[in-house]
Design a protein around this nucleic acid. Sequence first.
DNA 1: ATAAACGCTGACATGAGTGTGAGAGTCAAG
DNA 2: CTTGACTCTCACACTCATGTCAGCGTTTAT
Lengths: 121, 121
Amino acid sequence: MKIGELSARTGVSIRSLRYYEEQGLLAPVRHENGYREYSPLAEEQVRTIKFYLSLGLTTEQIAGFLQCVLINKEAFCNEVLPIYEQKLEEIDEQIRLLQHIKTNLQDRICSIVEERNQLGL
Amino acid sequence: MKIGELSARTGVSIRSLRYYEEQGLLAPVRHENGYREYSPLAEEQVRTIKFYLSLGLTTEQIAGFLQCVLINKEAFCNEVLPIYEQKLEEIDEQIRLLQHIKTNLQDRICSIVEERNQLGL
DNA sequence: ATAAACGCTGACATGAGTGTGAGAGTCAAG
DNA sequence: CTTGACTCTCACACTCATGTCAGCGTTTAT
């Protein structure tokens, strides 16, 4: 399967597929003409990459355990759990920060609305 | 007051003060030697900018109402409320997304832990 | 007078994945 | 044989506030 077909099957742009390869996440063989040839397994592999990216993991993190995960079950890959837990902490931290900002924003909005009401607008 | 002093008073780096000026948020006068001279009011102005940035507003958005806010009360500046509300929506959207990712992460973690337990590890 | 401390401009780097375009080679159908 | 659809590599752009460095001028204190 060539890159265009893999792109169409997975919904991942050709640009991104080449980027994943650059980051060590995909390793298609090459034809004599230089074209990439992907095995049928690559389709599932790309979906797996897509999923991990959607969890906010970086390509570098994914590269750290992808081979293991593709071969074994996730639970067997000791690299995965710490990364998940670290990411979870980061997410919590981001949520906390956003909640804090949200509170401040709501305070400001309330102040404005109240002040306008008091002025009888 | 020169830029170093303003930086020290506000805790905002010299680099950032020059950036704020570039973005139209500050307008110090210049000495003959090219040095920036800030009025004492600039200190409060920088704190105001800092606060709006901490709410996640961009310098462009801040520039849209900063002059008004510095002269009048926030409630008088009609540009402010829509920006606050728009930002609030963005924040909510980001929080939703992060919550969604968090849920997925927790599911993955649970799966791994359970699977390992079943294997008696 | 000299050195340290301060100021100036301009410009590149950051993060991280993706879009986009140029310039060129390859392949298949007409 | 030509045309169009694919593919290749290389490289810049993007977001946006900030860090950082180079190269140079100015002020201040010794």
